[in-house]
Design a protein around this nucleic acid. Structure first.
Length: 492
RNA sequence: AGGGAAGUAGCGCAGUCCGGUAGCGCACCUGGUUUGGGACCAGGGGGUCGCAGGUUCGAACCCUGUCUUCCCUACCA
């Protein structure tokens, strides 16, 4: 049992915070609601970013960058979008400070430096981007536009939680413009699949692809597609969204194009994003009471080697073997570190790297070398096994893949055994309170019923799964006829 | 926003009731012994007690104001 990390069973929220702080992913900052992403956490984000960026480019997208500030008049152009975000916008009203005449050494906002028009700090960039696209699009020859940007956004949250909900966070936002509805829809689904594939294959986190109900839809979208993941406490976390925006933004910003027959029409749009919130999902889905457990494919460090020795002679012997092994591992592209820091003892290192979720730890001692073996510990199962030094690099490569697979399967089993079919309202409530997890139940399809269910149970419709089988049934609350089950859960 | 709690060393806390040289554990620094699951010994450094006023010979402690953080409720496309 870790000395530093609160047990999951004792206090789940505290456990989550401890993992992030003690695992050195992030730190609190002097700014309310904002966090510092520490080098280890940022390395994780960089790995995630690199994989996604590559996939975006493979699917025909290019990167660009748009301004942080959005003039209020542009921001309010698409009414629903503006309304949806209005409550959580940071607004710049002045452009200058001056020394306080009444209080030496202090600064005040210069009342004479008031902006003519307030600038909204982007909570998302549709407005500024569509205002720009207007100038770029005249004809069908200008389409499609397939642009992504890596950026920070600000949403002024009342209650914040490291990685899951902070005032400022990092993300990518794709914004595409198309000549036809079909093409835009295809793009929306294509990017949802890119997300699902990434989260499942790299983060070892199974997701359910679905469509949001009207209540949960992105403000300004015709349809919001999402991937939903289940955390270890059974709560749902939206891991990514892809929006079919229809012609809403094109109409708001008057973006028209001439088609081949010289007819003018509004452009069709999509937007899609994932954020540093994914790190929160990763932490909550896989970790245990000893610390983080990171999937090998995106772990900043995949293998750590800890030497155990008495005296310089033994150290020299170990160094030599490690040197050889490191070369082989690096040649395979494996991220490996040799921790021969003499300031800390092996036991301390073991605990440290477990806390940080390094998938594989190798312990190499003089005693092992005599037998031509090393001790290999895997973080996911917390088991130790002796490996022969011959062909070790190959075996480690395989082990990393095993761990990746094992983590995915474990998360998938957990998720599948925590999705419950429920057919009565009483059962719905008791399942939520006693068992957590997702509930598959019938719903009459109306926003009013969804709203009522939310008020009574705190559970929301996470999504209507894409491959949903159609079946006759009765709404869990109203008893009205329904054609399919949807997924309910309490959510982050 | 309403209710509750807390601000003292990098972190976790005691001291406040009852005013009188600012303490403990961890971490840190130096030296040594150690090294197969968070080492041990010895020595050492570090604080305008959240901030601003007030009472007092004297305030971490009492009084007033203020700021911040955390928890519950509310809010959270």
């Amino acid at each position: 049992m870790s000395k530093e990390i609160t047990a999951r069973a004792e206090d789940y929220s505290k456990w989550y915070n401890d993992l992030i702080i003690k695992g050195e992913l992030a730190d609190y900052s002097a700014v309310r609601g904002c966090m510092v992403i520490k080098p280890y956490g940022f390395a994780l984000w960089e790995n995630m970013r690199d994989v996604l960026d590559k996939r975006f480019k493979e699917t025909g997208h290019v990167n660009a960058y748009f301004p942080l500030f959005v003039p209020k008049s542009l921001f309010e152009a698409e009414e629903k979008n503006a309304e949806g975000f209005a409550k959580e916008c940071a607004v710049v009203t002045h452009y200058r400070l001056k020394t306080d005449p009444d209080n030496k050494g202090k600064l005040i906002v210069d009342p004479e430096a008031k902006l003519e028009e307030e600038l909204v700090v982007r909570p998302t960039s549709e407005a500024i981007i569509w205002n720009t696209y207007k100038n770029w699009i005249q004809s069908y020859r200008d389409l499609p536009i397939l642009i992504n940007q890596w950026a920070n956004v600000v949403r002024w949250e009342m209650r914040t939680r490291l990685f899951l909900r902070t005032a400022e966070f990092l993300w990518q936002e794709g914004h595409t413009a198309h000549a036809t509805k079909e093409e835009a829809l295809e793009e929306t689904v294509k990017m949802l699949n890119v997300y699902a594939e990434f989260v499942e294959h790299y983060m070892a986190l199974p997701v359910i692809k679905g469509v949001k109900s009207a209540n949960e839809r992105f403000a300004g979208a015709e349809d919001t597609y999402c991937i939903e993941a289940m955390m270890q406490d059974g709560k749902a976390l939206q891991a990514g969204t892809s929006h079919f925006l229809g012609q809403n933004f094109a109409k708001a910003f008057d973006v028209k194009f001439s088609d081949k027959s010289n007819n003018l029409d509004y452009v069709w749009a999509t937007s899609w994003g994932v954020s540093t919130r994914l790190i929160g999902a990763l932490v909550m889905a896989h970790s245990d009471d000893e610390g983080l457990i990171l999937p090998p494919r995106i772990a900043p460090l995949q293998v750590v080697i800890v030497p155990i020795y008495k005296g310089d002679d033994q150290k020299a012997m170990i160094d030599e073997k490690v040197d050889e092994l490191m070369k082989q591992l690096k040649a395979k592209g494996i991220r490996v570190k040799y921790d021969d820091n003499d300031q800390t003892r092996p036991g301390w290192k073991f605990a440290e790297y477990e806390k940080k979720g390094v998938p594989v730890r190798i312990t190499m001692g003089a005693r092992d070398l005599e037998n031509n073996i090393v001790e290999v510990a895997r973080r996911d199962e917390r088991t130790k096994e002796n490996y022969n030094l011959d062909g070790l690099a190959d075996k480690l490569e395989t082990l990393l893949e095993d761990i990746q697979q094992n983590m995915f399967l474990r998360a998938q089993n957990f998720r599948d055994s925590n999705i419950r079919r429920v057919d009565t309202w009483e059962e719905f409530l008791s399942t939520l309170d006693n068992q957590s997890g997702f509930i598959s139940a019938h719903w009459d399809g109306t926003p009013e019923t969804e709203e009522q269910i939310k008020e009574l149970s705190k559970a929301t419709i996470r999504c209507i799964p894409l491959d949903n089988p159609q079946e006759e049934g009765k709404c869990i609350l109203t008893g009205k006829p329904s054609t399919q089950r949807v997924l309910f859960a309490r959510a982050y």
